[in-house]
């Protein structure tokens, strides 16, 4: 076992595993999605809105893939290799053992990156797309925003500096992402308790996609839920989940869905009272902007009440 873990891999092989796993996993997920649709059809739960929403999900996937592909080739790959060759403190051997370590660290990093996407205005503008569906099935996992592929770069760069080969980081990133994908289902209720305690599960991720107030900004985890337990953002699924995002979007138009985070942010920036407010819109949590708007509305209402007694 130990010998196997220390067996050397080539960078080419890592790259190949990445492609291989991605390809077959996608097929498996499509089969699972088909199964979900069949079950929903039996329950007579298939609506035109669900079908439109699912199609839109896959359209955002292609749009994201296109933008993400450009970012990947132009910027990610080159920068990772450049940093790996010039600024990494060591170069770890390419072994299965290193890959295991890399997955573990990529998972903590996923937690922080995901948390960042939720608490920073710019991050939320892109990540809100993933949360905006009122449905919850495998196709929602493939619902991406325009810049979802951009921020991970900065979060994974420390792994490169720590000495993990770029292809190994890509593979670990992909594995965390794929694990996450499989969680977007309502078919699985709860898994045995030890699993629910350590691993992220469909139940935990349903909580993440909820608009119930006790569930907001909880369960950011990728593979292991322990990070949420450690860092104080865990919530158990104990009341019925209402899926979606505040404010709700009432559209299955792919264009509206894909860009609504940025159109909203753009509108807020345009209407902002000052430059410092604009800056804060980009870095503060979305809830801050909402509170500020409510405050201004209340003040405006009060001023109006004073003006006309």
């Amino acid at each position: 076992m130990m010998e196997f873990l220390q067996q050397r891999l080539t960078d080419l092989e890592l790259f190949g595993w990445d492609e291989y796993i991605n390809y077959w996993f996608f097929l498996a997920m499509m089969a699972l999605f088909a199964f979900e649709l069949i079950v929903m059809a039996f329950k007579k739960a298939v609506t035109w809105n669900l079908i439109g929403d699912s199609i839109t999900n896959f359209i955002t996937l292609f749009a994201y893939r296109f933008i993400g592909g450009l970012i990947y080739i132009l910027f990610y790959l080159t920068a990772f290799f450049w940093v790996y060759e010039n600024f990494s403190i060591t170069q770890l051997p390419l072994t299965w053992m290193s890959l295991l370590g890399c997955i573990l660290l990529a998972d903590v990093i996923y937690y922080w990156e995901h948390r960042f996407m939720h608490v920073c205005g710019l991050g939320w503008a892109t990540h809100t797309v993933h949360h905006s569906s009122p449905h919850f099935n495998i196709s929602v996992a493939y619902r991406f925003g325009p810049l979802d592929g951009f921020f991970p770069f900065f979060f994974h760069l420390p792994l490169i500096m720590l000495g993990f080969h770029p292809f190994m980081v890509f593979l670990a990133e992909a594995l965390v992402q794929l694990y996450q994908t499989a969680l977007h289902t309502q078919m699985v209720k709860k898994l045995p308790r030890p699993i629910e305690y350590i691993m992220n599960t469909p139940s935990h991720h349903r909580v993440h996609h909820a608009t119930n107030s006790k569930y907001i900004d909880k369960n950011y985890a990728g593979i292991f839920i322990i990070w949420d337990r450690m860092f104080g953002t865990f919530a158990e699924e104990d009341e019925k989940v209402k899926f979606g995002v505040y404010p709700r979007i009432n559209s299955v138009n792919p264009f509206t869905v894909f860009f609504h985070g940025f159109t909203k942010l753009g509108k807020q920036l345009w209407e902002a009272p000052s430059w410092s407010y604009r800056f804060q819109l980009l870095i503060r949590p979305p809830i801050w902007a909402w509170e500020q708007e409510q405050k201004r509305k209340r003040e405006a209402a009060a001023a109006e009440a004073k003006a006309s007694p």
Binding site: Q6, T90, L104
Partner: peptide
């Protein structure tokens, strides 16, 4: 984790 992995005696 990085340090532990750097001690590996890889083949």
């Amino acid at each position: 984790v990085g340090f532990a992995l750097s001690l590996q005696k890889a083949e």
